Structures are given as structure tokens and as C-alpha cells.
Simulated scan of single mutants.
Amino acid sequence: MNEPVNSPSTVSFGYEDIDAREKTARVGEVFSAVARKYDVMNDAMSGGMHRLWKDRFVRRVKPRSGEQILDMAGGTGDIAFRMEARGAQITVSDINQEMLDVGLERAVKRGIDTLVWSRQNAEELTFADKSFDAYTIAFGIRNVTHIDKALAEAYRVLRRGGRFYCLEFSTTEWPGFKEVYDTYSHKLVPRIGQAIAGDADSYRYLIESIRRFPTMPEFEKMIREAGFTQTKVEPIMGGLVAIHSGWKV
């Protein structure tokens, strides 16, 4: 496995380049601001399609009874609830306590008491080496400060034969649709955020963070460089969203 390269002193925060030491706190402020309306906004922004993407993602993960799975950046529980229903033992981790609080409340309402909830930084996990059979992260990795460190940590905590799955926005390659989506996301999503969550700026950042995220081939290369093999990219809607996967052998 390759170690993460020396991290840059500046990183992207939406379209800004900021001191790397500031990003974790600033991203934290974004998710603290949107936590209570996060799932409502996901429905509004995607027309409910995020639910289908997450269903498809979990089908690819194939959680099985008795498996130990770490769901990173999974605060509100969307992925964890789906995997728990298949019998896996899920640890839900997120750097943001407000997001975890929302997930805990949702779990109580659903009568689900088998999940483990743990506040964690994806770049510095406190779990022991080789603790999990699978590592999942959905719509979260683009928000970490140093993606290479998060990938290295995912590799470290997985057992041999463990699998890595990431659901993340990318750049659609469908002709015509890309331009329509760019207009929608940049002009309308912040307005929707203001109307529903009273917060245009946070949703402006979330859209800009998608644009600054590596392309599908670039991100797959990063996953390989972290040590994973048999990497695969499954584009959805031409790459608007993609499922990335790899194995630790």
C-alpha cells in the first residue's frame, strides 16, 4: 500500500482555495447548519432520486448477516438503515455531531437499536487495523480535507478481502444534460436551500465542492494508489453520480 503523499498547504473549499487547517472546521459549520433539513433538501434537489441511488449502492455492497461494516460520513443513517435491514452489524461514523444526532433520532423513531454511533474524523479513525469487512461512504468523501488520508484509513481498518464502496457526485458525460444540470445546480439549488433550509451559502458550497472533486478516472486512480485492487467505477446518469469500489487483498 502506498502512503499518502505530503498534503498540500491549501485545499479547495467550493471554488475557494483555503488553508488546509481551516477546511475541517468550515465544512463542519456547513453540515451543522444543514443537518436538520439535510434529508428534505436531498429530496428537493434530486427529485427523490437520491433514494434510488442509495438503494443501488447498497445492492452493490451486498451486506450480509454477521459482517462488520463501517459507514463513514453516514450521520443521518440513510445508508446504515438500508444495510442494517440485511443483518449486517453497522458502525455509523461522522465528524459532525449534529448529523449523528439527527441519525440517532431517526433510529429511535424506527425502533432500530442495533447500530453503533461513533464520532470520527475520516482521516484519523480511532478503530484498530483490520476491524471491518466493508467500508462505505456516500456523498461524504469530497468534503474531507485530504482525500488520500481518508482512503489510506479506509484501507487500514479493512480486513483482508474487505471491500471499499463510495457513492459520490461526479461530472455527467451525457451531451446536453451537463449544461442543463450546471445551470440548475448553480442557479437554482442555492435558492432551494434558502427557501427550505434558510441557507443558500451552504448549498452553494455543496454544489461547488462537486465541481472541484476529481473526475471518475482520477478518483479511481487515487483508490488504487491507496492500495485497493480490482477497482471499478459505475456511472449513474452518465456520471452525475458514480459508485466506486475496490478490494483489499
Rank of each mutant, 00 (worst) to 15 (best):
V92C: 02
S12M: 04
Y181Q: 07
A138Y: 03
M72C: 10
A138E: 01
P235K: 03
G14L: 04
W174F: 13
N121C: 11
W117M: 06
Q120N: 05
V241K: 03
A195K: 02
F31S: 09
A33M: 03
V144R: 10
G103C: 12
S9K: 07
F139W: 09
S118F: 04
E218V: 02
V116E: 08
G238W: 02
F81Q: 06
I137Q: 00
K109I: 15
Q120P: 00
W53Y: 11
R156Y: 09
A197L: 13
D201G: 08
G28K: 01
G14A: 06
R163N: 13
Y165C: 14
I207G: 13
V61E: 04
S209T: 09
H146D: 09
G193Q: 00
A44M: 03
F132Y: 10
T229D: 09
T231M: 05
R160W: 10
T171E: 11
L115V: 07
N143Y: 08
L100F: 08
D19H: 02
T231V: 04
P217Q: 05
P63Y: 04
M72A: 12
H50E: 06
R163H: 01
T24Q: 12
R64E: 06
S9L: 09
I223M: 09
E123Q: 12
V233K: 12
Q89R: 11
Y203R: 00
Q89G: 14
Y165Q: 07
W53A: 12
